[in-house]
Design a protein around this nucleic acid. Sequence first.
DNA 1: ACGCTCACTTAGTATTCCTTTG
DNA 2: CAAAGGAATACTAAGTGAGCGT
Length: 609
Amino acid sequence: MPQDSDSEDDVPLGARVAARAKQTETDAVMKNDDSEDEDFVGDSEDEEPLNKRKAIAKKPPVKMAPAAKSPKPNPVNENNNKKLFWETLSHSGVLFPPPYEPHGVKLIYDGRPVDLTPAEEEVAGFFAVMKDTDYAGKAVFVKNFWTDFQRILTPKSKAIVKDFKKCDWTPMYNYFFEQREKKKQMTKEEKLQIKAQKEVEEEPFTHAMIDGKKEKVGNFRVEPPGLFRGRGEHPKMGKLKERIKPKDVIINIGRDSPVPACPIPGEKWGEVRHDRTVTWLAGWKDTINTKDWKYVQFAATSSIKGESDQKKYEKARKLKDFIERIRKDYRAKMKDADNKIAQMATATYLIDKLALRAGGEKDEDLADTVGCCTLRVGHVTLIPPHTIHFDFLGKDSIRYDQSHEVDPVAYKSFGRFMEGKKDEMDIFDKINPTEVNSHLQELMPGLTIKVFRTYNASITLSRLLKETPEGTVAQKKSHYDSANKEVAILCNHQKGESKAHAGQMQKLTEKKDQMEAELKELQKEKPMSAKTENKIRGLKERLSKHMLSMSMKEELKTVSLGTSKINYLDPRITVAWCKRNEVPLATVYPKTLVEKFNWAMEVEPEFDF
DNA sequence: ACGCTCACTTAGTATTCCTTTG
DNA sequence: CAAAGGAATACTAAGTGAGCGT
């Protein structure tokens, strides 16, 4: 980017737009000027009154983007009417991973050790550590790795390392394994020392100042290089994710804040901009999905994220006032003779009833996953009289495999949409998320598809918590968890079964058998003493508790409760419930969630979602 | 109407931390 | 004290949707 930056076309779209619209309000982007010999590339100027910019006084005028030269702003259209997130913003930039340190352990090719350059050795190492994982067994992963490995090999190495099958990664793998063991074997003091060192190193990056307030930063570490691990059958798995250099990084910072010095000697930031219409502090282009960007954002516990989270839940809560009308609308339209209207209504019905995601079109070079609007005929089975079985891969290639009894009208419409279509064809071929969203906006301002997931998750929790029984804190907590579980199932939030699960269940079963045997033994006694009766009562109680926790554990083995807690359940429901039921908040929220939801802590106990 | 980019939220998994147990 | 086990956090991939240009 830097060397091309004289051409406006190389500035990201949003930046150009902002620069054009901008003028004084939106301190958008600018260009670099590589002729400058500064310690970063392209701290940009704009037409803001010069007295505001002391820094520029010491250097010759910087070349400006053509758009930025245009005369005074049209005040009506300042910053393109975009919302400004901050007035001042200062931070220390990003923390880069340490440079690669060669270990000298050889790749064995065709029985002979190969001398690799450090850069080659690094990439070989990426594969070597993974040699026994599922990934390394996948043809696509190996093929992509091999292509990129070949690409970075010097001619000399390429002349030797020609066939993947002749590579022996074992010595490298063993080296990494030993390193890991050594790390584990370190003494407590050594570990503590390393941790302290790490904290010192990251200290400048952990917080930023925004409008005079110190706030926590999220992912201030630049992602290290490695092999891309896509989820599911990702066509790009195994590709080399390249090392990000300062020139790849854009810093976004307040105009009057010092630009963080580039931490790598002799190198420069790709760009420095002052865009108040966004919340990110730094960003770089993803080297795998080249249309994507990675951003350094504030942490979830920051005010800026908290405010947006609160808005999200307020919007979902607002849907309560509109939901009846909306349901009436789609029920009436599901059987419309106009297929587009009927599809729109039926899709909305699914989004509401099953909390499906929108399902936007995806590029070919991504895993084949779907949401509501991209469901294909092969993903559903109609089971008379009006049950539909869904079997498809959703976000993160997580399988949605559920049967649902549906509205008979919806069932009939489904049949109509699928009629005469092959398995690979779209069920909802007349619509897309954008159209569904604009229809929703007509029914409620600001309403989009994803709001239904938040709404249904939160209102489900709220409804289930109303049935909380009297009892101990542990019992109430368990009731909360079951409600949480219902929501997780609704949203299809899953996790991989832990490796230890089966063994743990077996142990618990053994314990159960033992308790049952003990109980039988006690009950054999003829003249029941008061002491024995007590024992029996106690044992029975422990046994039933034990069995309950066993069945809960089994039911939850692949259900993830955390995702809905973090993203879907209005924290005010939980906080108010804790207050009403005298359950300490820490029983259901870990420390970071209490922090993240600090805006909800003062909610009144009677709060109803 | 459509495609595309950008910025943000949502997501599962890997790693680390902390507590319990042996 | 080490190992095990579970909880919490770190990491980064994968969605959604606004908004722009064509």
